[in-house]
């Protein structure tokens, strides 16, 4: 009996060990990808902050209420750009994002542009109408692709397929913490009344509204690119910490199993000795 259980434990140890090898390898891959992902993310920050400020300034100067992209429409159909992971096994990364999205989109008339395979699958499962399913890979998405996306999204907005454009992605706060962000992209939000802006005297080569219409595709592409970089860094960081704790867990399980194995072995030996001694006495 002791022998059989020893064999069982040995098998368990072996299987946990091979799982641990996999989680360890995934952790290493995530660690090496994380460095590049973080670099890309940092590089995308300046454009995001500078262009956001410039667009806010141009919007503040738009007095004309009929300007497209600024004036809210009567319709309330929303389009969500949903940036999720290419793969699973990243802790709560995908689940948290979809939870936040479902809560936000509750009861609204919704369509979506899913980016990342998990997002595409999710939209299909929920039966949400998608603008395109052609972007199942977030990793390594280029600026050029973001321009295509921006054009696609503006086309949809211009043809009134939807009236509001929202962006859902995971913001990289630190290695240990990533948070889901939901932002409205269109119509562009006016800065709150009373925000001081010194731009009254600014000379606009073209009227602010025209300037805005011209730079909006660029601005949108830049925002998407930055969000994608953030999301991918978050995904890799989430996967790294998930795999890190999985590896630690496996290590604990193995040492626990080894202890049990040794106890079983000791038990078997003791029993054998007792039996032999008992045999010799008789």
């Amino acid at each position: 009996m002791a022998g059989a259980s020893m064999k069982d434990i040995k098998l368990r140890i072996r299987s946990v060990e091979s799982t641990m090898q996999i989680t360890k390898a995934m952790q290493l891959v995530a660690t090496s990808k994380l460095r590049r992902a973080k670099e890309r993310m940092e590089n995308s920050k300046p454009y995001k902050s500078i262009s956001t400020a410039a667009v806010a300034a141009a919007v503040a100067c738009c007095d004309d209420p009929s300007v497209p992209y600024v004036t809210p429409r009567a319709g309330k159909r929303r389009c969500y750009v949903l940036i999720a992971g290419d793969r699973g096994l990243a802790g709560g990364y995908n689940a948290n994002l979809f939870k936040a999205f479902s809560a936000h989109a509750e009861g609204a008339d919704v369509c979506a542009l899913p980016l990342g395979r998990k997002a595409v699958e999710r939209c299909h499962r929920l039966g949400i109408e998608t603008l395109s399913d052609d972007y199942p890979r977030v990793e390594g998405m280029s600026v050029g692709t973001c321009y295509h996306l921006a054009r696609l999204l503006l086309d949809g907005y211009d043809t009134e397929r939807y009236d509001e454009l929202w962006l859902v992605y995971t913001n990289f706060v630190s290695m240990m913490s990533q948070e889901v962000v939901i932002e409205q992209l269109l119509p562009v939000q006016r800065p709150p009344e009373g925000t001081p802006h010194t731009l009254v005297s600014t000379v606009y080569e073209l009227p602010p509204a025209e300037t805005l219409a011209h730079v909006l595709p660029d601005f949108l592409a830049g925002r998407l690119y930055s969000a994608l970089c953030d999301a991918f860094a978050s995904e890799v960081a989430a996967r790294r910490s998930a795999m890190d704790s999985a590896t630690k867990n496996a290590g604990e399980m193995i040492s626990d199993l080894k202890l049990r194995y040794n106890r079983a072995r000791q038990g078997a030996i003791t029993q054998e000795i007792t039996e032999i001694v008992a045999g010799a006495e008789h």
Partner: peptide
Amino acid sequence: RHIDYVAP
């Protein structure tokens, strides 16, 4: 010392 300015 250019004046505040915006152009596409």
